[in-house]
Design a protein around this nucleic acid. Structure first.
Length: 487
RNA sequence: GUCGGGGUAGCUCAAUUGGCUAGAGCGUAGCACUCAUAAGGCUAAGGUUGUGAGUUCAAUCCUCACCCCCGACACCA
């Protein structure tokens, strides 16, 4: 029986259309999901949408819609992104407005409450009358709202529920100590360590007054309050498995797997590696397995913003270049862990160099010749993935994938292809064929075998391209232009 | 400010414990070729490795000072 593996993205918040940063996270997770599947695991791959909270509530109001209608529309947009990016069709899509999820969130609340980790407390919030918004300390400048510096910040008292995060400092530190690779890359975990050791953890509020903001999961046993969106959204990683009702599913995907592998942006570390783990501890549930933190995508050295006009739309990119080209670029040219710059010029340059001139041309030249000089199609190594027969390059690809270094994994594949180009140049099968067909055929069979191995390993990154090359090799026929050159 | 990570070819990045002429891809220029998407190959140009000092037979790597960039410092969903 194959081993289970559970991987999830963060659920994007639906206050804006999908952007390239989330496309990167989705594609990265999908590559790992496909890789694991090919390596023989049974994979549960989860994504979805986070739909509660004040920002959604307000945005819906702005657009003159009721919140449910608004989030339904956005959920549809995010689902559309999945097919645009060629995400595994078997992906599970959870919405935090699903009835089962809300029930799960309430169940976790109850467990945490029973454990004595949830209590009610009056606290002061800073409120800007101009914005009609609650402000955090970091949003203020010299004690004033940056948008309305002439207005005084009002202090309002509100009674909310708090989660006893402070009680988990030592347990979290001990857990990090035992699991040094809990967060990838490791420096992100060190940030959390120094946060806990330095300033320490404070309890945080996990509910909001329903009268002010009704768009949330009702707090069990208190009709006045709803969940603060964080406390609800994080539970999605287990509600997606059917927790708490489906015990068999939870046991298989959360216990047997050793927990979930979570992909998340660098603004998510605290929530995912600290709060969420403490919540699990509080409910007496095992922790996540690993958190993989990626950087942000910038455009032209600046943060993407509508006003700068440098926003990269993943849908437009797919329309112009195709799904696999976008997947390739995200995997190869966006740094796996650091911030990266993304411009249309860079994308086009990489498309022409790596896809049109690279893999596209290589496949065309090999299959053109093999079609002429190789009498029978080679036996395609369908079960090659993860086998002992893999070449050194193949093993290197898998090693990089194991470390979530997607860009290095793809780099190895492209080096390998360049090596085949050199073999063709040196061996000149096209010339040898004029005088010695058998020798030429032998050379070409070797090239086809190498290409086949590359094709197998390419599948997690570019599934459609891999499939097309595989078909071409099996038919021993040159495929249609894989990546037409863009001028 | 405190803590952490960086500053290497036009661009993006490599350089096992300090050790041969600091590497690769892209981009640029030239050469020969033609199976291929005017693609591919070969060659070349391009670096006082942020600055100054120190340790050492030897420093991109270690030490100190300085300059610059980035991240964390909590409810940003």
């Amino acid at each position: 029986m194959s081993k289970p593996f559970y991987i999830t993205t963060t659920l994007p918040y639906v206050n804006a259309a999908p952007h390239i940063g989330f496309a990167f996270e989705l594609v990265s997770a999908d590559i790992i999901a496909r890789h694991k599947r090919l390596a023989g695991y049974e994979v549960f791959f989860n994504t979805g949408t986070d739909e509660h909270g004040v920002k959604v509530f307000r945005k819906a109001k702005e657009e003159g819609k009721d919140p449910q209608t608004y989030v339904d529309e956005y959920a549809k947009k995010y689902r559309a992104l999945l097919s645009a990016l060629g995400i595994s069709p078997s992906v599970h899509f959870i919405r935090t407005t699903d009835a089962a999820h809300k029930k799960a969130a309430q169940e976790l609340w109850k467990r945490s409450f029973n454990a004595g980790d949830i209590y009610k407390k009056k606290y002061r919030i800073k409120y800007c009358v101009g914005c009609e918004l609650e402000k955090t300390e970091s949003e203020l400048e010299n004690g004033h709202c940056q948008v309305h510096p002439h207005l005084d910040i009002e202090i309002i008292e509100e009674e909310n529920y708090f989660f006893r995060l402070s009680a988990y400092q030592e347990r979290l530190l001990a857990f990090y100590e035992e699991h040094n690779d809990f967060v990838v890359p490791p420096f992100r975990l060190n940030e959390m360590r120094s946060l806990i050791r330095g300033k320490g953890l404070e309890d945080f509020s996990i509910s909001r007054l329903k009268a002010k903001m009704p768009w949330g999961v009702p707090v069990p046993g208190d009709s006045e309050q709803v969940f603060y969106v964080w406390f609800d959204a994080l539970v999605s990683y287990i509600s997606a498995l059917g927790w708490p009702d489906d015990e068999a599913s939870f046991r298989k995907w959360w216990i047997e797997t050793g927990g979930v592998v979570q992909f998340a942006g660098k603004d998510q570390i605290r929530q995912q590696a600290v709060m969420w783990q403490a919540m699990l501890m509080s409910a007496s549930l095992p922790p996540s397995k690993q958190i993989v933190i990626h950087g942000f995508i910038q455009s032209g050295g600046e943060k993407m913003s509508k006003s700068l006009g440098n926003v990269i739309d993943p849908f437009a990119l797919v329309k112009e270049y195709g799904t696999d080209a976008v997947r390739f670029y995200l995997a190869r040219h966006v740094a796996s862990f650091e911030d990266s710059d993304f411009t249309l010029e860079k994308f086009k340059e990489a498309y022409n160099a790596d896809l049109a001139n690279g893999i596209g041309n290589l496949v065309a030249r090999i299959l053109q010749m093999s079609n002429q000089y190789v009498s029978n199609p080679i036996k395609f190594p369908d079960t090659f993935y993860n086998s002992d027969n893999l070449s050194g390059e193949g093993k290197a690809v898998l090693t990089h994938l194991h470390k979530f270094e997607l860009n290095n994994a793809v780099f190895v594949l492209w080096n390998w292809m360049q090596h085949l180009d050199i073999l063709i140049q040196d061996g000149k099968p096209f010339e040898v064929a004029k005088t010695n067909k058998i020798a030429a055929e032998k050379q070409l069979i070797y090239l086809l075998q190498q290409l086949a191995e590359i094709t197998v390993l390419l599948e997690p990154f570019m599934p459609e391209t891999s499939r097309r090359i595989k078909t071409a090799i099996k038919a021993n026929k040159k495929p249609e232009n894989l990546f037409p050159r863009k001028e």
